[in-house]
Amino acid sequence: MQRWTTILFLTGLSIVLFAIITPLVLGQSPMLVGKLINASAVNDTGAANLVTAVVLAYRGLDTLGELAILFTAATAIGIILGTTDKTQTTSSPTAGFIVATAAKVLFPLLLVFALYIILHGHLTPGGGFQGGAVLAAAFFLLTLADSGNNIKHKVTQVIEALAGTAFIVLGLVSFALQGVFLQPWLDKGELGSLFSAGSLPLLYLALGLKVGAELANLLSSLANVEK
């Protein structure tokens, strides 16, 4: 019975959504602002990946807001779980041989992948959010494989605080220098090279570390609180 009501509700919802998106032709929306950004992004920011130009330069405040939302969610979950720094773990079943070995093999690969995504955020698809999530997944994989191998809350907390502060301070420096918050500064460099796009890679680095530390913190605090 419950199943059928769920399906009925979902069908209704999908009809509404379908009705809403039918008039839209895929790939033909009037890109009023999009066109302008396509034309001027490279000059304005020096980032080869235009998505990064939008995420960090044109809509940098949105990114800061999203970072804060993630932080808020992690803090709220922390309050609900009600532990600050419990090192005690439950007697969770030990992981099997496959998981333990795969974790050891995958961990360095994931780490490199995450750092690549973060550091090349201004050149290729990806960036701080994605890289940070991979980073968190890499560290959590170790916890999964060996429940004694815990993520240290104190360390992640400090990394998280410093990274978040670094993001805002990078914005405040441009506020002090040019009177505008979160304006890209530093030399733009040569388009497409690793050291280009001014302050954007630094922002992405801070973002990635913050997201990674936060998610790792969240996952490990979910994983080992006593029942």
Binding site: G126, Q130, A133, V134, A137, L215
Partner: peptide, 15 residues
């Protein structure tokens, strides 16, 4: 949309 795909892969599939 490789950016969105990457995000979905990490967040949606795994986390």
């Amino acid at each position: 949309a490789p950016d969105v795909a990457l995000t979905e892969a990490v967040v949606g599939v795994a986390l």
